[in-house]
Design a protein around this nucleic acid. Structure first.
Lengths: 228, 228
DNA sequence: TCAGTATTCAATAACTCAATTGAATACTAT
DNA sequence: ATAGTATTCAATTGAGTTATTGAATACTGA
């Protein structure tokens, strides 16, 4: 009766080996960063390399690993190759992954607190109320990510002011009305920097922790294109 | 202006490195199998080693990796150490992981088809209707997993008949009424084997692809303990 | 065709991981 | 205490992964 000892062993081995392709793909910090960035929208190899501070060759190789695991697709357009998520469920997967890391790894919260939790920036924002207040013009929503990410998808009504431009575009912002700044998500520094700068100059600013994928996952509408 | 070139680089590195702890934990087929088994309920090291066909030492080491990533907790009781999921969200994470693998890796479906999709076993079962029919006594639900997994959690009304016992307990089963067999989930062979055996003996049997975690995730009640 | 640019490939060296082995530890029951 | 069992540890080996480098390829526009 060796039967029960290896019931479908070769099948199990094959299945878990396939599953591990996904696991191996998300086992490297570099690749997780690339995946996170691609959750914001499609990008070329070079722009990803620049954003992450890696060499182009290294970035290209990591992207190929992610593509081999079918988490990304690549498309050549002229000189450039654009990578994008292979589907909406990949973005959901990344969010689940991030949530597990967040809730199980105390170190994540420690690191985050050390870097981000300054000056009471962590007040939670009521999303449903925010939608209403934007519609009434009671609040200005600021998207401080690079413009290409804004175009790929943004919170309806949000104004695009990439962080590097913020300082010289302060005149465009209302001094009385509340400003809600958001960026890529809970672990992105852009909105935190923006809020710090705005507050230092007397604006009434708070941070929304959501990124666009989080906003979408909560069932809210997402706008695409150049306009708010 | 080197500022923008490495905005919060050390923070990002720290965060993604933490995320990668989870990724590395699920990068090994062996560990994924252990995680899958633990989604069915707590188990000791030795029973996991036996189930997976691995040495106890190797199993113990993999379990410790999963524990270091905070996906599992361990508790000693006498001679035995019992490992269990560190939280309900780990089970949800595994389900998401599995779904991504399933929908993006064509090979997973190929392998599954080769092993499981025989004799039209793949008809889908209507879950909501199943709940009703169980209540009315129109159908018998068979849990063919090991008894300990049944006790840890099962579909309400289901009868526990572990696959190795099925052959000699056929007399307990109704010949007219439909039998729905389930096991650990869509990639488990137990229920498939059960249905094959039952059909060969003239029973009217179908397979429910869900495992208990899937059943629970769909919002259905799960029963615990010895009784249906 | 040629120069120029974005991306990929191939080879390498440093590093990390997986499975095995045998020994050590933790605990129970006698 | 002692024997016996479950688990963990430590050391080893071979395999796999990462980042780097320089060259090759793919494409555009003159």
């Amino acid at each position: 009766m060796t039967r029960t000892l290896h019931t479908g062993r070769s099948f199990k081995d094959a299945i878990y080996q396939q599953f591990a392709r996904i696991g191996k793909a998300v086992a490297s910090p570099r690749r997780l960063e690339l995946l996170d960035l691609l959750c914001q929208g499609p990008r070329t190899v070079e722009s990803l390399a620049q954003e992450t501070g890696q060499s182009v060759a290294n970035t290209s190789q990591h992207l190929q690993v992610l593509r081999a695991a079918r988490l990304l697709t690549a498309e050549r357009a002229g000189l450039f190759v654009t990578y994008r998520l292979a589907g909406g469920d990949v973005s959901e997967f990344f969010r689940t992954f991030r949530r597990v890391a967040e809730s199980h790894l105390a170190d994540v919260n420690q690191v985050t607190r050390d870097f981000l939790d300054e000056r009471g920036l962590m007040e939670p924002v009521d999303r449903q109320a925010l939608v209403e207040r934007v519609r009434c013009g009671e609040v200005t929503v600021l998207d401080v990510r690079p413009r290409s990410e804004y175009i790929a998808g943004h919170i309806p009504g949000a104004v695009s002011v990439p962080l590097p431009e913020l300082k010289r575009r302060l005149a465009e912002l209302p001094h009385r009305r509340e400003i809600v700044a958001y960026c890529r998500g809970p672990f992105c520094v852009l909105a935190v920097e923006a809020v710090k700068m705005l507050r230092a100059r007397g604006f009434k600013a708070v941070r929304l922790e959501d990124g666009v994928p989080d906003w979408r996952a909560q069932g809210f509408r997402v706008a695409a294109g150049e306009n708010p």
